[in-house]
Design a protein around this nucleic acid. Structure first.
Lengths: 166, 166
DNA sequence: CTCCTTGCAAAGCCTTTGCATTTAC
DNA sequence: GTAAATGCAAAGGCTTTGCAAGGAG
């Protein structure tokens, strides 16, 4: 694999384009074909700022009149995951969610077990610690998936969340 | 909820017994009935030192001539999860795994995307950082689920894993 | 031109649910 | 005795797969 993944994006608006270039170069390298469907899935994931599930991607694309089957969406997500361009996350809902991961590293999700709310937290120190921990244990860190389950707390730091799930 | 969860186990051999007491007290509190099936699932999870899936638990119990249905296993795992006595984990295999979490906190999994190997890493500093991050963001940390996807590296720190999945 | 990719539909598989029976309290 | 839990089987829902048709290289 080329070392291009190490280049950090200069502008956040470039991230999608960069991810697209990376995707194309990985695909070329590994003899995967660069189809319009695959690019469409990549763009959809990178257009969104949250975590999507496979079906949401399928529906978004359908709304945009981009004909694509669910099977292709799943296949493509596997490819994107393989190249570390998306992260798989389990938010405690019944199925896998996916999220762009190029240029948006170093964050984790906190999920309220009462109301289901999901909050993103960013922290570089944490990411560094994880990378170090992996190295110390003979692993090279690729993508990662951090989910913390807990409960929202009130202003006074006393009241636990009692909301019902949406 | 009583504060008993904060008491750390003194001996590792006490953990199962402690988890069992906690389970019973939580159940009493919240009007759940203390059935032999539920206790059996708890014990099975705590007897194991790795992550199990629901079906493995079902099969282990069947081997021990403990009649129980899959439905009950799933129900009980939900209860255990609710009480933070097990953690749900996604190891990139196709379904949820469960792992005891009382007395075995502060660890994460590193999963090799090539060979599927799963390694556990323990680190208190990380756990503290996570707890702090949550507090800073208005969350109370319950159980957590950390999975890092990457690749084993060779002795020289150069060779990436090329093994096939088992 | 060749072989990979797509797409549809069906299959697969984990998980949940309905309802009668059993059981904890 | 009563309400909750179990268990079976069937349904549910996400994901994968087989195979013919289409498209990239």
């Amino acid at each position: 694999m080329p070392d291009t993944q190490q280049q950090l994006p200069k502008k956040s608006s470039d991230r999608t384009a960069q991810a697209e270039s990376l995707f194309k170069s990985y695909m070329k390298e590994q003899q995967f074909r660069c189809t319009t469907e695959r690019i469409a899935v990549l763009r959809e994931v990178y257009r969104s700022n949250t975590h999507l599930d496979a079906d949401e991607i399928f529906i978004q694309l359908k709304k945009k009149k981009i004909g694509i089957s669910r099977a292709t969406v799943y296949h493509t997500l596997d490819l994107l995951f393989k190249f570390h361009l998306v992260t798989k996350i389990d938010l405690g809902h019944k199925h896998t969610h996916y999220e762009k991961s190029h240029g948006v590293a170093n964050h984790l999700h906190v999920i309220c077990e009462q109301c289901g709310k999901v909050v993103e937290i960013r922290n570089n120190e944490l990411a560094n610690m994880l990378e170090t921990l992996c190295k110390e244990n003979g692993f090279e860190l690729g993508s990662f998936s951090l989910q913390l389950f807990g409960s929202c707390i009130g202003e006074e730091g006393e009241k636990k969340c009692t909301e019902k799930p949406a």
